[in-house]
Design a protein around this nucleic acid. Structure first.
Length: 425
RNA sequence: GGAGGCGUCGCAUAGUGGCCUAGUGCGCCCGCCUGCUAAGCGGGUUGAGGGCUUGAACCCUCUCGCGGGUUCAAAUCCCGCCGCCUCCGCCA
């Protein structure tokens, strides 16, 4: 949710943001009108309520016939209060519904437009020239099967399409990668967290995943719980309804969880291998910070992601996602995409979003504002991928050898316990 | 799954329909007093929204786990939900 005060004070900023996202500008005026309505309804209710409270005291003091008469009058007043309260509640609900329909206000500099209007900020490393090395690269699934590392056939037998087993060296590679990421983050002062993957509706909604992404999310009807597609959801909810002390700096969490995604809108896309699957593992970074530090912390998250990508030695590029391709909660989003040789293109391995105060406002995460004494204000939240199962795709393909073996990147070897993955068939 | 108990200010507790503008103790903050510390004395100490301005002060409303209901009036009575505790049952 955006700040209603900002919208009142400067509606043009919100209009411009909506325009850049390719979303409805007129929503801004609808919100302003609903706000007017709510304020007048609220004032009417509160005045009537104050009268009622005064009359209640009079009743309590009176006795005998005088009391009976006062009660009769108080009944009328009670009816009026009830009806005015209903009006005020309805006006409040209307405003809230409209306000939740607005996406976060984009950060200045975000490219306007949709999915294809990203701006490439940096490109690191060069795609390997397999032709010059005299062989045609195998894709990650063929490699994984030859190495005895990935089994999608049995994954489908047990759970259906887009499920898989990581076996032997594949499982070791994933655990090694996640442990490397976690170890690096702990060194940087992160608090490691293993988070719940089933959450209540208000937590899912608070993180913003029940709006546009609702069809992407698994729901357990019998228990009314949602399976999370990232530990961001649980980490965002971790401090819900709390007033945090950020005077010693941001709270930095590294959440390890299995992630579940329905992939409802992507039938036919990436059906081969483990690029797009219903279940995978991820280490997610999540910050709670003071609003004025959010943009700088966002750069820090991006730097950490780049360091981790450097550690697995794959070519990648960094893109600044266009406004129309941001989630509703994000004010800015950077993706790092690794080169996938057999696809001849870059594929997303990490994503980091600055949600400014948008998530925190829904989840009621606040801090004391040092400049305004004891007053509270909403904090900013940021999130970013540290490592996921999908990274195995880039590792396998970019480090493959002509004989079908795969060299384990040096930084990973202590965590995987193997220097080379050898074909078993 | 069954039975019972509980949820009040940062913590602990009092409060069985109007005298609650929620009392008291502890903690914390400010001040006074005092060789220092402690003690003592006085004051303050949930959060949100609205009036309203750049802000402060002031006024009003809401906030006793959450949401409904009864009543002229609800921390207090009723219903639902959530959480915690105890016992029984079940259990990868």
């Amino acid at each position: 949710m955006i700040d209603l005060r900002v919208l009142r004070a400067d509606p043009d900023i919100v209009r411009a943001s909506q325009r850049a996202r390719g979303e409805d500008e007129s929503l801004v005026d609808q919100v302003l009108a609903a706000d007017e309505l709510r304020r007048s309804a609220l004032a009417a209710f509160e005045q009537a309520r104050a009268e009622q409270r005064a009359s209640g005291k009079a009743v309590a003091r009176a006795s005998g016939p005088a009391k009976a008469e006062l009660v009769v009058r108080a009944k009328d007043l009670s009816e009026r209060v009830k009806s005015l309260q209903a009006d005020a509640d309805a006006a409040g609900a209307q405003l809230d519904a409209l306000l939740r329909g607005l996406g976060n206000i984009i950060e200045p500099g975000v490219p306007a437009g949709g999915e294809d209007d990203y701006v490439v900020l940096d490109t690191v490393g060069a795609p390997r020239d397999f032709a010059a090395q005299g062989f045609t690269p195998r894709d990650h699934l063929e490699l994984g099967e030859r190495l005895g590392a990935v089994d999608t056939e049995r994954g489908a037998k047990v759970s259906g399409s887009r499920f898989y087993f990581l076996t032997g060296p594949g499982a070791r590679l994933e655990l090694g990668l996640l442990n490397l990421a976690m170890a690096r983050l702990i060194e940087r002062g992160f608090t490691p967290m293993v988070t719940p993957t089933l959450v209540r509706p208000h937590v899912m909604a608070g993180a913003g995943y029940l709006d546009a992404h609702a069809s992407e999310v698994y729901h357990l009807q019998a228990d009314d719980l949602y399976l999370t597609g990232t530990s961001e959801v649980a980490l965002a909810g971790y401090h819900a309804d709390e007033i945090l002390d950020l005077s010693a700096g941001p709270l930095r969490y590294a959440g390890w969880s299995t992630c579940y995604r329905r992939e409802a809108g992507s039938h036919g896309k990436d059906t081969r291998g483990i690029i797009r699957v219903h279940q995978f593992q991820k280490i997610e970074m999540f910050f709670f910070t003071s609003p004025q530090d959010a943009a700088a912390e966002h750069q820090r998250l991006l730097d950490l992601q780049r360091e981790l990508l450097d550690a697995i030695e794959v070519p990648y590029r960094v893109i600044d996602t266009a406004a129309g391709d941001l989630g509703g909660s994000a004010a800015r989003k950077y993706d790092c995409e690794a080169w996938v040789p057999t696809q001849g293109r870059y594929r997303e391995l990490t994503s980091t979003s600055n949600c400014t105060t948008y998530q925190a406002r829904r989840l009621q995460v606040r801090e004391r504002d040092p400049e305004r004494g004891e007053q509270t204000r909403h904090v900013a939240t940021l999130n970013g991928t540290a490592a996921t199962t999908r990274w195995l795709v880039a590792i396998l393909e970019n480090h493959q050898q002509p004989d079908g073996s795969v060299t384990v990147p040096a930084a990973l070897r202590p965590y995987v316990g193997l220097d080379v993955l050898e074909p078993v068939r």
